[in-house]
Nucleic acid binder design. Structure first.
Ligand SMILES: [Mn+2]
Ligand SMILES: [Mn+2]
Ligand SMILES: [Zn+2]
Ligand SMILES: [Zn+2]
Lengths: 160, 160
DNA sequence: GCTACTATAGCAAATGAATCTCATTAAAGA
DNA sequence: TCTTTAATGAGATTCATTTGCTATAGTAGC
């Protein structure tokens, strides 16, 4: 498989943009981050390593990475966007703990069924989806005295 | 069923806050809006009706409405949040057209299966989920020459 | 109703993520 | 090397949202 750098360079050529040290250094840093990141974190991480890039360059580079499919916006929280690199990763969604903030990544075949059904039912061409599930992880769940079930199941039980 | 006003007043009492004309007028306006809205739209709509409320009050009221389950954040786009009232509506997700911006609301039982599976697999207590599906509506799809299928199906077809 | 207490509204000022400006730098192609 | 022009960096700007301040209004007790 092509490296993310090659993907980016192909994109740069295709779009008639210029290869620059800054963009490629930012890209490298993005792919060294495991998990999610935000602009400020990325900036500080580069700074700590002695890399001199301005925030403006980061803000300008991210849309390019997103456009060529290397990075995606994950969520808007704490008043700003969070991102993750996605090249070489299978598509996944996020299960977030409302207690400790832990993020569990998961894949699920039900979403393919759902996409098919939406395409059939509404005549849409489905491009992608963005799903975030919220709940409490085993530790936080027990600390809060909640059962090991979904809110949905609990409701169904109550109705019986 | 209780009215949204009653739900809010109960909440106000529970939290030891004070009933005010402004909050209740904003709430009324929110429930007169069919579809999604943003702070600016809500503010202008009130202004046009001659209702004098400041934006600060709207910004301070919305978190209360959200906290008592009457309103939810729908999406962050165009640099700011969009909301919708949810009390008395069944839970739904959004299918958004990337061409014209049309939003189709849908419910789907696959998501219940998914929640159950996540609860079982990861031991989480699932509270809720937020799903947005993006694609092209029939009109925009045809204008763009796209097939009536999901990106996923297209990929599967290519691999065969 | 009157009073005391204090949460809230309104306004203006502050905040901060994201974008823009513009002088300077440096790719890329000849 | 030289020319052209896209990209960078630093600071200014924008604009949604938050916050501080003070007058006002909701509420409980009389
Ligand atoms: Mn992830
Ligand atoms: Mn909706
Ligand atoms: Zn947790
Ligand atoms: Zn459309």
């Amino acid at each position: 498989m092509e490296s993310e750098l090659q993907v980016f360079q192909d994109y740069i050529r295709r779009r008639d943009l210029r290869r620059t040290r800054e963009r490629e250094r930012i890209l490298q840093e993005v792919f060294e981050i495991h998990g999610h990141f935000d602009v400020d974190g990325l900036y500080l991480q580069l700074k700590q390593k002695g890399v001199k890039v301005s925030k403006a360059s980061i803000y300008r580079a991210l849309p390019l990475f997103i456009d060529c499919g290397l990075v995606r916006e994950v969520e808007f929280s704490e008043g700003h966007w969070h991102y993750e690199h996605i090249y070489g990763h299978s598509h996944h969604n996020h299960l977030r703990c409302l207690g400790c903030g832990e993020i569990q990544e998961f894949e699920n075949q039900f979403l393919n069924c759902l996409e098919e059904q939406l395409a059939r039912e509404y005549g849409y061409y489905i491009q992608n989806h963005h799903l975030q599930v919220q709940g409490f992880c085993p530790a936080c769940r027990q600390a809060a005295g909640l059962p090991a079930a979904s809110n949905f199941l609990k409701k169904v039980d109550n109705e019986q």
